Amino acid sequence: DTLHVTQDGKHIELRGLSEEEIKLVEELLRRGRKVEEALKIIEELRK
């Protein structure tokens, strides 16, 4: 699936995420994380 995010005035499209990963990214962003940080966390969880 694809998640569309706008952060720091930039539109970012995150592709290839599972539904659970999207929920996790959304939660991390709500808690003030940056998109880059959220993606690093997803990458770690995929290992």
Rank of each mutant, 00 (worst) to 15 (best):
D1L: 07
D1G: 15
T2A: 06
T2M: 06
L3R: 06
L3G: 09
H4C: 08
H4L: 10
H4Q: 09
V5I: 08
V5T: 07
V5Q: 04
T6I: 14
T6E: 11
Q7L: 01
Q7I: 15
Q7T: 07
D8R: 01
D8E: 06
D8K: 01
G9F: 01
G9H: 04
G9C: 05
G9Y: 00
G9V: 02
G9S: 03
K10V: 15
K10N: 09
H11G: 05
H11M: 09
H11R: 06
I12H: 15
I12S: 03
I12G: 05
E13Y: 04
E13T: 02
E13F: 04
E13I: 09
E13S: 02
L14A: 13
L14R: 05
L14M: 06
R15Q: 15
R15D: 13
R15H: 15
R15E: 15
G16P: 05
G16N: 10
L17C: 01
L17Y: 13
L17N: 00
S18P: 02
S18W: 08
S18C: 11
E19L: 12
E20I: 10
E20K: 12
E21H: 04
E21A: 03
E21W: 03
E21D: 06
E21M: 06
I22W: 04
I22A: 12
I22H: 05
K23N: 09
K23T: 13
L24I: 13
L24C: 12
L24S: 06
L24Y: 10
V25P: 00
E26P: 00
E26M: 15
E27M: 08
E27Q: 09
E27I: 08
L28S: 11
L28K: 02
L29C: 04
L29S: 02
R31Y: 10
R31E: 15
R31W: 10
R31Q: 14
R31F: 10
G32R: 02
G32A: 04
G32M: 04
G32W: 01
R33Y: 12
R33F: 11
R33V: 15
K34I: 07
K34D: 08
V35Q: 02
V35H: 02
V35F: 02
V35A: 09
V35N: 01
E36K: 08
E37S: 06
E37H: 09
A38D: 00
A38Y: 04
L39I: 15
K40Q: 15
K40F: 10
K40Y: 10
K40T: 14
I41V: 10
I41A: 13
I41D: 08
I41H: 09
I41N: 06
I42N: 00
I42P: 00
E43A: 04
E43K: 04
E43Q: 04
E44V: 07
E44N: 07
L45D: 08
L45Y: 09
K47P: 11
K47S: 14
K47A: 13
